[in-house]
Design a protein around this nucleic acid. Sequence first.
DNA 1: AACAGATAGTTGGCACCTCCAACAATCTCG
DNA 2: CGAGATTGTTGGAGGTGCCAACTATCTGTT
Lengths: 151, 151
Amino acid sequence: MEFAEDAAPTTRLALPSRLLNLAAISANRITDLALKDTGSRRYHYTLLSTLDENGPSSQADLGRCTRIDRSEVTETINDLAERRFVTRTPDPADRRRNIVSITAAGRKHLATLRKLLTDAQAQLLAALSPDERTTLVTLLTRVIGTAAVRD
Amino acid sequence: MEFAEDAAPTTRLALPSRLLNLAAISANRITDLALKDTGSRRYHYTLLSTLDENGPSSQADLGRCTRIDRSEVTETINDLAERRFVTRTPDPADRRRNIVSITAAGRKHLATLRKLLTDAQAQLLAALSPDERTTLVTLLTRVIGTAAVRD
DNA sequence: AACAGATAGTTGGCACCTCCAACAATCTCG
DNA sequence: CGAGATTGTTGGAGGTGCCAACTATCTGTT
């Protein structure tokens, strides 16, 4: 019986926390697909973008700024350095630190990623008007600001 | 120099897709903490709740309705059946199917979970007014509706 | 009635992500 | 100087979403 087979399009009574997860899954599907042929993952973009905006940073600062765990920063920077998208030099003023800087090739790669991801955002938020997208971003930022900052 | 050490509270220029992930991480942290002492995970709640609202269902329908993969449904139902929160009986009308039903003990457990998770939602969305929470849910539902339904 | 194709449940595995614990090296501050 | 904190690194844990394969069963067509 293929009649309705409505199979409840989900989310009828899902908790906000579940809705956030489903939305994140959608987001990841779309963005991962967009990045598939670039050899880069989401973390690569996040760090490249942060380096481009904030300038050279230590790995610890990168982690705090992006909420990526220190160990993940290490591995991701390894990848980026291997492809010559960033350089990692010891900080003479604090020999514990590495100063990570984006290279010209890194900026070029970042431009490619940004283009792909911008399109992905548009696809993800296709159902929302520009105002609604702004609202969503605002609300998400507020949720993150309170609920997440506690560590 | 501990001056600012602002370490950029993140999310200044994060993509919507990244914001969704960060919000989902916050949501999962809070909900996992809430469920910690119950022996149940998020999927257990999702399936129990769905069974309570929709009545007995096949595992395939549960998966479609909740967007949980079939293999995950199998494992989660295993757990729930082991704790006598659901029963799994073959469907006489279609011997491929299992009819999964919530038990009285399951409903009792569900009430416990629901209480904990309701509090968790309040904590997660503490920064938003009631209207804003509604708006967030609406926008997320629309995002999920378009971007996710494609498989 | 018989066959092709779809569906159900199960199992196993993969990839990513988030988080944590430990460690040596180094810095900071009293 | 010495206690405590911080940095980068390594290793591992657990959860999640996803996919492929397999058997059993149903459906629709001829």
